[in-house]
């Protein structure tokens, strides 16, 4: 089991956003969290990443408690978690290469290894010729791939994805879903994917959980 979540609670302005939520995510699983807007799915993802502190309950990653009862025990940068944001959050002042290099540098990885890791990932996503481009010079789909590559280059244990395809047109969304499944096959990483799109959930998941008002309503496996 990669992630263990037990009796998690989160309140905003006295209002409960996550209610007594417990969940386990297995290695290499593609878990999709499905639910309407404001149901707490993004908050859950951000708590796993360490960007939001839970008010009660705990989260374990690889058997280690990372957050517990209003405390961040392991800082986000030490959790080995990657995240794809809804708006991708590519740093506009950095080239594709620099975007990918930033995290590796921060982790103190030597130059040669940085270069080889970036080359490897960028090759897999077929973006070699865009290495020196700025995010604004890329199409929506290309930006998407770079956002994924930026996370994968750090070799995280878990990849969290917060509605990354929400702003794309339906055709491109289908293409990227296929690409995503291919990348998952290549890297074999554990994925936790948030969406409110039912079709997307069924296309991508090995398991789906339905959340409403911060509680798990149902767990299902797509056929």
């Amino acid at each position: 089991m990669v992630i263990e979540i037990e009796h998690l609670h989160k309140f905003y302005n006295g209002k409960s956003v996550i209610r007594d939520l417990s969940l386990n995510i297995d290695k290499s699983e593609r878990l999709v969290i499905l639910g309407p807007s404001g149901c707490g799915k993004t908050t859950l993802l951000r708590m796993i990443a360490g960007l939001v502190v839970p008010d009660r309950g705990y989260i374990k990653i690889d058997g280690n408690v990372v957050s517990k009862d209003s405390k961040i025990i392991v800082e986000p940068e030490n959790r080995e978690v990657g995240m794809i944001f809804q708006d991708l959050a590519l740093w506009p002042h950095m080239t594709v290469y620099k975007n990918l290099e930033f995290g590796l540098k921060a982790k103190g990885i030597i130059r040669e290894e940085r270069e080889s890791r970036i080359d490897e990932v960028i090759e897999k996503i077929r973006m070699r010729e865009f290495k020196n481009a700025y995010p604004a010079e890329l199409s929506g789909g290309q930006q998407q791939r770079i956002a994924i590559a930026r996370s994968l280059v750090l070799k995280p244990k878990i990849l969290l994805m917060d509605e990354p395809l929400a702003h794309l047109d339906p055709e491109l969304r289908l293409v990227l879903q296929k690409e995503f499944l291919k990348l998952h096959e290549d890297f074999g990483i554990t994925v936790c994917y948030v969406t409110h799109n039912r079709d997307e959930a069924y296309n991508l998941a090995t398991r789906i959980i339905f959340i409403e008002h911060g509680e798990i309503l149902k767990v299902t496996k797509p056929i």
Binding site: R46, A49, G50, L51, P76, E77, R79, V81, G82, M83, F85, Q86, D87, L88, A89, L90, W91, F102, G103, L104, A106, K107, R150, S151, L154, P156
Partner: peptide, 10 residues
């Protein structure tokens, strides 16, 4: 989100 993306590694 631009800072959060960096926060996961730095």
């Amino acid at each position: 989100a631009l800072e959060e993306a960096a926060r996961l590694s730095s």
